[in-house]
Amino acid sequence: MAATTEKLSSIRPLVSEPSTGGIHEDRLIKRVFLTPAVTILLLMSIFPLLWSLGISFTNIEQGSRQIVTQNFLGLGFDVTLRNYERLLTDQRLFDVARNTLFYVIAGVTVQYTVGFGIALLLNQDFPGRTVFRVIFLLPMMMTPVATAYAGRMMFDSTFSPLAQLIRTIGSLFGEPRLTASWLTQASWAPWTIVLIDSWQWIPFMTLLLLAGLQAIPEEIYEAARVDGATPWSIFWHITFPIMLPISITAILIRSLEIFKIIDIIRITTGGGPGTATESLVMYVFNQALTFGNYSYAAAISYVLLVMVVVFSTVFLAIGRRANKRVNG
């Protein structure tokens, strides 16, 4: 396997050393490259970030009138910790956090596993490969709003083809009124939402992973087969390790996005039945825009921000370590 890893590191060099010479030119140029992007990010984010941080220590709520002029950055309001105190005792916040955690874990697991499987299939050589590759990308192109409506059409327990299928199966067993409560029962609905989200985003995983698979030089496989490796051990000892870095990025990106899931839930269940499908960001959305508790929403967001930063850092660190262990 040593040859394999050597080959790999030549495909993916680490951050390169700057070349020598032209120091002054370089210093100017390197700023030119990075500055525009950083500037636009700073410009667009610094006010929202500071404002949210400031307001999270106030009691500004809807009805406080004219937030812009009077309450800029919380001036003219008592500084208070009550929003942060409140979120420690907010049972519903914990409920929605649990739901969201479920979405992230279940969603990423389903999407990564299925996405990887399909990427492996598409990596084979067979007639019609391009057609399937294009077809499999389609769901990603649909706006989540439309996906959610499509999901409601698919999983309606009376008018959907699926419902009819289930009724048909039911009548074979003498249960013509058999129904599946995809979106109407608290124990099913979160799974249904994961299914809808997965339908849309498995292509994203497939795309990234397929790209990674295609970067693996064919000779590595040839060499392994000559050594008499079984398909399973080829996957486990060659494909998977090589795919680890890209998997980590793909999983991180998807986790961050599922973490912010809202459109699909708002349209399919509105958070019901009960509170079974409500997500964190939906809760924040309601607090901020429906209830007008801007300051509390900002406080929740900041706590989330810290948690996500910690999570991402830890995740990337673990990923790097795992990568080091498998790929040397």
């Binding site: 009805g63 029962q185 608290a186 009960g274 309601n286 429906t290 007008g292």
Partner: peptide
């Protein structure tokens, strides 16, 4: 009254929980 959306949402959640027999 101000906050009606929030009051009604709390009621909505309570009623939904009872209806789903939670």
């Amino acid at each position: 009254i101000p906050g009606s959306a929030e009051y009604l949402d709390a009621l909505d959640v309570g009623v939904a929980r009872a209806l789903s027999r939670e």
